[in-house]
C-alpha cells in the first residue's frame, strides 16, 4: 500500500491499494482514518504511484456547515455520490469498511457474492454461509489467527464460469463481546481501537494476517460448505447437511444471485455438488480448530 499526499490539498491524504482484484483509492482528512487505514491495510501489496484505472474512488469526509462543530458527522462518497446518510464522526473507519462492502456487493457483479465467510489452508477451502449475527466473522477471525487464510468475513466471491472462490482478505469486522474474546485468545492479533455506538454495537477491526494479505490474488476451489452456529455451552457437533439444504443456505445468503440468473443457479449447483456439506454447532474454538485441522489432514491423506 502506498500513501500519497495531494500536493495542494490541506490535510487530505490519499491512499491507493490493491485488494485482490480491486484497486481502491481512498481520500480523507479524518484523523481516525489517517491513523487506522494505514495500520489495517499495511500488509497489502503496494501499487504503482497512481494506478491508471481505479475500481472504487472513495472519499470519507466530515460534513460541512454547522455539523463541523456540533456533533460532527462523516459522509461516504463513491466518486462523488453519497449512498448513505452520514454517521457520527467517530465511526469514520467502520463507515469506510461498510461502504467498501457496499461498493463491491452492489456495483460489481463479475463474481457471485455470497453472504458468507471463507477460509483456506493447504487447498482445503471452506465456505461458511450464515446470516448476520451467527458468529461467522468471529469464527473466520479465529481461524485466520489459527493459520488459515481468510478469503472474506462478509462477502465470499465466486467466479461464475469456474466456481472458483476469489479472496479479498479485508480487515475483519468484530462486534461486541467477540472483540475482547479474540484479543484474549490471540494476544498477537492486531486490532484497532473500539468504535462505540454504531448500528452494530461496539465494533473493532482486525488486521489481516500476512498470509492472508500476501496471497490476496490467489483463488481456490471450494471443498466444503459448513453452516456454523454458535451455541453457548455446547460441545462441538457436526452433522452432514443435505445438498438441497446447503444449496438454499448458499443462495438464501447471496447479494447478487438474482442478478446472475441462470449462471448464478448453475454456479451454486456446481459448488454444492463438489463440496462436502455440514452444519456445525460450537462454543469452544479449540474444538473448532481440531475439526478444521482434521479436514486438512483428511485431504492430504486422500
Amino acid at each position: 500500500m502506498r500513501r500519497l499526499y495531494h500536493p495542494d490539498a490541506d490535510g487530505d491524504s490519499t491512499w491507493y491499494f490493491e485488494l485482490g482484484t480491486f484497486t481502491v483509492e481512498l481520500t480523507s482528512r479524518v484523523d481516525t482514518v489517517k491513523k487506522w487505514i494505514p495500520f489495517l491495510y499495511q500488509p497489502f501489496r503496494e501499487t504503482v504511484a497512481r494506478p491508471a484505472f481505479i475500481d472504487f474512488r472513495i472519499r470519507v469526509e466530515r460534513s460541512a456547515s454547522l455539523r463541523r462543530w456540533v456533533r460532527p458527522q462523516v459522509n461516504f462518497y463513491l466518486d462523488g455520490f453519497a449512498p448513505f446518510k452520514p454517521l457520527p464522526a467517530r465511526q469514520a473507519v467502520p463507515l469506510f469498511e461498510w461502504g467498501l462492502n457496499w461498493c463491491i456487493a452492489n456495483q460489481y457483479h463479475r463474481y457471485l457474492h455470497f453472504h458468507a465467510a471463507g477460509v483456506e489452508k493447504n487447498g482445503v477451502m471452506v465456505i461458511l454461509p450464515a446470516p448476520p449475527g451467527s458468529g461467522k466473522s468471529t469464527l473466520a477471525a479465529a481461524l485466520m489467527q489459527h493459520g488459515w487464510r481468510l478469503f472474506s468475513d462478509e462477502i465470499l466471491m465466486v467466479e461464475p464460469s469456474t466456481a472458483r472462490a476469489i479472496p479479498i482478505g479485508r480487515p475483519v469486522n468484530l462486534k461486541n463481546e467477540s472483540i475482547d474474546l479474540l484479543h484474549q485468545i490471540f494476544p498477537q492479533a492486531q486490532l484497532t481501537e473500539k468504535f462505540y455506538d454504531t448500528s452494530k454495537g461496539v465494533v473493532a477491526l482486525m488486521k489481516p494476517t500476512a498470509e492472508t494479505a500476501s496471497r490476496a490474488s490467489v483463488g481456490a476451489m471450494p471443498t466444503h460448505i459448513i453452516t456454523p452456529r454458535y451455541l453457548p455451552g455446547s460441545t462441538l457437533s457436526v452433522s452432514a447437511c443435505r445438498k438441497p439444504a446447503a444449496f438454499m443456505a448458499l443462495i438464501g445468503n447471496s447479494f447478487n444471485y438474482h442478478i446472475h440468473g441462470k449462471a448464478g443457479f448453475d454456479t451454486a449447483c456446481r459448488l454444492v455438488d463438489r463440496c462436502d456439506c455440514f452444519t456445525l454447532e460450537y462454543s469452544r474454538f479449540e474444538e473448532v480448530f481440531e475439526f478444521f485441522d482434521g479436514l486438512c489432514e483428511g485431504s492430504r491423506g486422500g
Binding site: 484505472f53 475500481d55 456495483q107 460489481y108 457483479h109 463479475r110 442478478i259 446472475h260 440468473g261
Partner: peptide, 18 residues
C-alpha cells in the same frame, strides 16, 4: 476494452438485463 473496465461494463449490463 481493458479487463478492469470491462468488468464494470458487464456489471451494469447484468443489472440492466435483470
Amino acid at each position: 476494452v481493458p479487463q478492469k473496465a470491462y468488468h464494470h461494463l458487464v456489471s451494469a449490463s447484468l443489472q440492466a438485463q435483470k
